[in-house]
């Protein structure tokens, strides 16, 4: 299974792998927001946690359909389904690879982009912490959505429609953790909820996603 993780990471950084696209998209979202809402630094500071979280979520969404669609096209998915490694494990590894190539860079870049939005100084740590805890859930939930739509020719839009409602709790707790951190209120509850969502999604969704892939392959 480690072989699968290594291959996916290798594919992502080779030409055409799409590594960095999510990051660039995140940057563009963050840059566009001040043009839309005005340059008032107080206003920007107030909405910064939400914008950064929504931006990270959209950047994550952008690359979801690549998780299984490419492997489905070239037949790798058929072969993985008949391989000795459990398909559930393969799904988890592919979600992990997706996180390493999108969620992790987003987490590292977010504080830097927070600067552009006048994020108050006390928010940087909470932003990084909440993204680090929450983005694995985004990758895992996204893999489930990608597994549902893997057989479809143009599944990208449907994938977004299916996944976005599932992202609501993660987004709420993530942005709330940062907002509370800035106000100096207790961040324990939202951060624990984020961790709980991530752990539960990692434990359970690979089974649902693998079931969906098996259905789509037949």
């Amino acid at each position: 299974m480690i072989a699968l993780l290594q291959r996916d990471l290798k594919l992502a950084i080779r030409a055409g792998g799409g590594f960095g696209l999510g990051l660039a998209f995140f940057l563009i979202v963050v840059v566009l927001v001040p043009f839309g809402v005005g340059s008032d630094s107080g206003l920007l500071a107030a909405i910064a946690p939400g914008i950064l979280w929504v931006g990270a979520l959209l950047a994550c969404l952008l690359s979801l359909d690549r998780i299984f669609a490419l492997d489905h096209e070239d037949g790798s998915l058929d072969l993985l389904a008949t391989a000795p490694i459990p398909l559930e494990g393969a799904v988890a590894m592919k979600a992990a690879a997706h996180w390493v190539t999108t969620g992790l860079p987003l987490t590292l870049a977010a504080p830097g982009l927070g600067l552009l939005l006048n994020l108050p100084a006390s928010g940087y740590g909470w932003l990084a912490a909440s993204l680090a805890l929450g983005t694995p859930a985004l990758s895992m939930i996204g893999s489930f959505g990608a597994a549902l739509t893997v057989g479809l020719k143009r599944g990208g839009l449907l994938l977004s429609l299916l996944v976005l409602p599932l992202y609501v709790p993660t987004l709420i707790f993530g942005a709330e953790a940062v907002a509370r951190g800035i106000d100096g209120r207790d961040t324990g509850t939202p951060l624990l909820m984020l961790a709980a969502i991530t752990l539960a999604a990692t434990a359970l969704l690979p089974f649902a996603a693998a079931a969906a892939i098996r259905i789509n392959l037949r």
Binding site: L162, P165, L166, P169, I172, E176, A208
Partner: peptide
């Protein structure tokens, strides 16, 4: 099959969303 799986997973997230929204 696929919609059934979505319905089950969606139900869990719908309940979770309800609590998240209350919290929010």
């Amino acid at each position: 099959d696929l919609t059934s799986v979505l319905c089950i997973v969606g139900s869990v997230f719908a309940v979770l969303s309800r609590y998240a929204v209350n919290f929010w």
